[in-house]
């Protein structure tokens, strides 16, 4: 056996478990969902192919477009807030502040606390009668009476974003902190020697050198936020009056609530297409970055 052939066999052997795993839990369900999206599958034991009917139906009804817009707005504000707060946090944790280690540890709890417990905690904080936030706002005279945040459409929408940001910020912070620490110290010393102040150094050195890491983190955060289910489901189940129903919640309600599997699959495929588009945009940006077209 030639050495190159044995190298190929060895590589395939290493690849096989991961490949089988991905085929079983990603590729097969994905293909099955796409097939399902062209059927009228429901609770009945049999189903028929209906062509594009499910897609025509969901795009024909105005509420799906509303759901898409709401999802994008929800995702945009959540990702933007996570990136801004994460960048600020990473910058702070990277600077030589007293008690730096303590601050680094304090960043972690939202990430460490099991997600469901964290969300329930926020659910209680948002409670109008007993919640801390409503109580504090009343004490400061900012609201007249109890404010049930999750029972009002507008405030529920923002409340779910705040919780999503709270859970998502630690990962963004730690990832960006790691990227920031990989920037050579010499660059800052050289800039300081040349008279560049803190803000100038941040703008001209830190931020440009962080672009690749920020792009990666934005994509990861975008996909996770776009598909964020637990937070909204536990806090509002998409209510009140569908005001927090995003695409993933909508898909779940259609497929699992109304048992319209075919229509739910069509909605899931639309999510898949959007996420794929995000990835294409990301990889194009990374390619341009490596070719030096983005400065």
């Amino acid at each position: 056996m030639t050495s190159s052939r044995s190298a190929v066999i060895f590589a395939l052997a290493l690849l096989a478990p991961a490949l089988l795993y991905i085929l079983a839990i990603v590729a097969y369900p994905l293909v099955d969902t796409i097939i399902l999206s062209f059927t009228n599958a429901a609770l009945r034991p049999t189903y028929d192919f209906v062509g594009w009917a499910n897609y025509q139906k969901i795009f024909g009804a105005g509420n799906f477009i509303d759901v898409i817009i709401r999802t994008f707005v929800w995702t945009f504000f959540s990702v933007a807030a996570k990136m801004v707060i994460g960048t600020m946090g990473a910058t702070l944790l990277n600077s030589a502040i007293p008690g730096q280690t303590v601050f680094r540890i304090l960043t972690m709890p939202p990430w460490i606390v099991p997600m469901a417990i964290g969300i329930f905690m926020w659910g209680w904080m948002y409670n109008g009668q007993f919640g801390m936030i409503s109580g504090l706002l009343q004490n400061f005279g900012l609201i007249d009476g109890p404010w049930p945040f999750l029972a009002q459409g507008n405030s529920a929408f923002w409340a779910t974003i705040v919780t999503d940001v709270w859970i998502g910020v630690p990962m963004v912070t730690i990832y960006l902190l790691a990227a920031m620490q990989s920037i050579p110290k010499d660059l800052y010393e050289a800039a300081w020697t040349d008279g560049a102040g803190r803000l100038y150094r941040f703008r001209r050195i830190t931020l440009p050198l962080m672009v690749p890491a920020m792009l990666t983190m934005s994509l990861l955060s975008l996909i996770a936020t776009f598909n964020s289910f637990d937070i909204i489901w536990i806090l509002t189940q998409g209510g009140p009056s569908n005001q927090t129903t995003t695409m993933i919640i909508d898909t779940y309600k259609t497929a699992m609530g109304s048992r319209k599997y075919g229509e739910g699959a069509a909605r899931a495929v639309v999510i898949c297409i959007f996420v794929s588009l995000f990835c294409i945009v990301y990889f194009r940006a990374v390619r341009k970055l490596s070719q030096g077209e983005i400065k």
Partner: peptide
């Protein structure tokens, strides 16, 4: 003005 061992050039 200082010239560093690593040159400290801004790669971007």
């Amino acid at each position: 003005a200082m010239v560093f061992q690593s040159y400290a050039l801004y790669p971007h």
